[in-house]
């Protein structure tokens, strides 16, 4: 990479940082314009965590391969009773067992 290209890269990174910050402050700016939050909007906002986080889980389960899917099923069962750290450990053990022990 020469000097000019490197400068381009720095500009791209800075623009990306500004764009990302805009997404992180944008919702707040919009919502605080409202004096009163209607019940349906409140219900929608309440659904945000489960809705967004599910989109980071479901495709990995479906398209990640059988080993990943099996690890997630076991982690799910563990997660109903135990902490996130134990879910991570259980899932990791399952995926490593499938990848190495059964090949």
């Amino acid at each position: 990479m020469d000097e000019a290209q490197h400068l381009d890269l720095i500009y791209v990174i800075l623009a990306a940082a500004v764009a990302t910050f805009a997404t992180r402050v944008g919702g707040y700016v919009l919502i605080t314009q409202l004096k009163h939050i209607p019940p349906r909007l409140e219900a929608a906002l309440n659904a945000v965590p489960a809705a967004v986080l599910t989109t980071l889980v479901a495709p990995a389960f479906v398209y990640g391969g059988l080993d990943v899917a099996a690890a997630m099923v076991v982690a799910f069962a563990v997660g109903l009773r135990f902490s996130t750290l134990r879910m991570l450990l259980a899932g990791w053990v399952v995926v490593m067992a499938i990848r190495y022990a059964f090949l």
Binding site: N46, A47, A51, V57, A60, A75, G91
Partner: peptide, 28 residues
């Protein structure tokens, strides 16, 4: 596998909220 499982744990943390199952099903 760590990141999807981590996010799965976060999803489970919200399982007592109103409308949890329909929301998760629709988003999934």
């Amino acid at each position: 596998v760590l990141l999807p499982i981590y996010f799965l744990g976060l999803v489970l943390g919200f399982r007592k909220r109103d409308r949890f199952l329909p929301v998760v099903a629709a988003s999934a």
